[in-house]
Design a protein around this nucleic acid. Structure first.
Lengths: 234, 234
DNA sequence: CAGCTGAGTGAACGGTGTTTACTTTCGCGG
DNA sequence: CCGCGAAAGTAAACACCGTTCACTCAGCTG
């Protein structure tokens, strides 16, 4: 009964996994625009039409892939954070996550381009649906917000004089208890890291011939220097 | 002889212009990935094969389009800068250009996505060829470098303590006389502006529900505050 | 006027997503 | 154990796409 139907369900899930694996292989091989149902089906020894039993359209597959990638990236960052040990300060935790973010993105350029680049046609909804906190993209963002909130609670977060806090009162509506100061620090820090990373991923700085790693580290150092040191225990 | 051949040449150039106009119309209508030779030919009442008399491949058309767009953006920024009058200080000039950059990008989202987003397959060479200073992308970057060099000459540029200058000595190889301090300020300032803009263009912040304009203005204000005021004349 | 050159055509090749109707497979309930 | 029904997969078709090739045709040149 349910055992046997579980068998079929598991077979189905295995097929879905295979589809997504092959889709990712294509993504890695030739970029986000080259994910092709027909090529996946060819690799599986199937017809393209058969894939419609598993995904209603190519867009849905890509969106699923984005969700998986965000999850993978988030777990990688969490692992880097947790490797510091249980009592680690919020600043090293943030630094470790930021560095892991860059490492993962450069180790998986195609995947990073997919989730951090312009949404493919038909995938626009993915980023828009992020409003839900359960959305993989939002869950990823939250792991950076959490240590910043901790810093704020401990009074270690600096006032960003140049950010107009008045316009941020409606930010992060799904985190209603988030102080605007935390929102300001998170948003500016995030866009700065994102700027270096996106410029790197999208070849925007190749004409300068510069090594971008120091630029990324500079933003990390700049953030760290802004935060007050932890109050010495005892 | 040359008169008549000039006629032909002008006719040819008019056709090239029409092709690029229609390509841009498609870009605006449906995004960078939707530029299609066949659709352009259809709009022109021609066959797709005929377009190969004007461009060796679709990639070449897109690259030409990118060049035009960079030129258009640069001229828009230069116009905003020059509107300040001949004796304007370098900081307001930079601010005016940065604001015009954002205005243009948001007024031309598809075009901005094409030049600031990940290179389309086959267009990777465009960003790589930027090493040439005559390249449209490099020429755009230089208009931001110039006022910064002026600030440095006047001793108004701050030392960015967090940037590792040692790794920047090989930056901007085509501007060999550029001081590393200018390179450092340019690169960090540019990636910060780019970060806000790209996040905005690529829907990376929609889940926060935030108005990104204050974030962009905050980076402008932050830069301006770092620069020493001009020495009072007389 | 003859001939060459450039513009444009039409058909074809191989690729794409998607839909439709059809067939095969296989687990489940009687 | 067997047949039913649902699920899985197929084949063909449609409408696109970039690109190539052989071809025509008009017009400028010598």
């Amino acid at each position: 009964m349910s055992d046997t139907s579980h068998r079929r369900e598991r077979l189905r899930e295995r097929t879905v996994t295979e589809i997504k694996e092959l889709a990712r292989a294509q993504l890695v091989a030739a970029g986000p625009a080259s994910i092709s149902l027909r090529a996946i089906a060819r690799d599986m020894g199937m017809t393209a039409a058969a894939l419609y039993r598993y995904f209603p359209a190519l867009d849905a597959l890509v969106i699923d892939l984005c969700t998986d990638l965000y999850g993978e990236l988030r777990q990688a960052c969490e692992a880097a954070r947790d490797a510091l040990g249980p009592g680690a300060d919020a600043v090293p935790r943030l630094v470790a996550m930021a560095r892991e973010l860059r490492r993962w993105a450069l180790d998986h350029r195609a995947e990073a381009t997919l989730i951090f680049g312009p949404p493919l046609p038909g995938v626009e909804q993915f980023h828009e649906l992020c409003v839900d906190l359960e959305h993989a993209g939002a869950r990823f963002g939250v792991i950076f917000i959490e240590p910043m909130t901790e810093l704020w609670r401990d009074g270690r977060l600096p006032a960003l004089g140049h950010v107009d806090l008045a316009h941020l009162d409606r930010a992060l509506p799904n985190l209603p208890d988030l102080p605007v100061e935390v929102a300001a620090v998170f948003l500016t820090s995030w866009t700065r890291l994102y700027g270096v990373l996106a410029a790197e991923l999208f070849d925007q700085l190749s004409w300068t011939g510069v090594d971008t790693e120091p630029l990324f580290e500079a933003e990390i150092a700049f953030f760290s220097a802004q935060v007050k040191p932890p109050s010495v225990a005892r």
